[in-house]
Design a binder for these strands. Structure first.
Length: 179
DNA sequence: CCCTGATTCGC
DNA sequence: GCGAATCAGG
């Protein structure tokens, strides 16, 4: 998309209103936040009522754009202990309701992230279609509530011992509930 | 990990 | 002029 006068005006307005580059990009559509930032700089309106900006310049000299091959590995043998949750909370009954993100929006195919529950809600053919969007339960594709739904142990022949088996079971269960 | 803006530079 | 890649920081 090109920077029409109209879009540039929008950009200036939103930028002066304090919106972040990504927010502006999302609103304008067809551009990334990088594009917005780049344009902002080209327009010469970088400074703003930016809260987080003590006045420090980042100063980065050279940056080989492409064909970057060299550069030593720089090992990092020392590993971090990492705390990790001692005792996971018990699987709560859990309310399997919609899902409102902190941003006030819903989790759509555009806003869904890896850390968000991918449990589909609604008809994929409808605009109202969204995803659960809650915090993913430990590496799982779903939140705790939906994980328990996807993986309903049949009580019998449960012990497949392998995680792969469990994963397959989860997938099978998912099929049962949706697609 | 999420996000922010800043900068460089191939196109 | 444009913006992806990258950086530095919160």
């Amino acid at each position: 998309m090109a920077w029409t006068d109209e879009r540039v005006e929008q950009l200036k307005k939103l930028w002066s209103e304090g919106l972040s580059a990504s927010q502006i990009a999302k609103q304008l559509g067809g551009v990334t936040r990088n594009a917005v930032i780049g344009k902002v700089h080209r327009l010469g309106l970088s400074g703003r009522a930016t809260p987080s900006r003590p006045a420090r310049r980042t100063v980065k000299p050279s940056r080989p754009r492409t064909t970057t091959a060299s550069t030593a590995p720089a090992q990092r043998p020392v590993s971090r202990p990492s705390p990790s949750t001692p005792t996971p909370a018990a699987p709560k009954p859990a309310p399997v309701e919609p899902a409102v993100l902190p941003s006030g929006e819903f989790a759509t195919v555009l806003t869904l992230r890896d850390s968000m529950c991918k449990w589909p809600i609604g008809d994929p053919a409808q605009a109202e279609f969204r995803f659960c969007g809650r915090k993913t339960a430990g590496g799982n594709a779903y939140c705790e509530a939906h994980s328990s739904m996807a993986y309903q142990p049949s009580a019998k022949r449960r012990r497949r011992t392998s995680d792969a088996g469990a994963a397959l079971d989860a997938i099978a269960a998912t099929r049962r509930y949706n697609f």
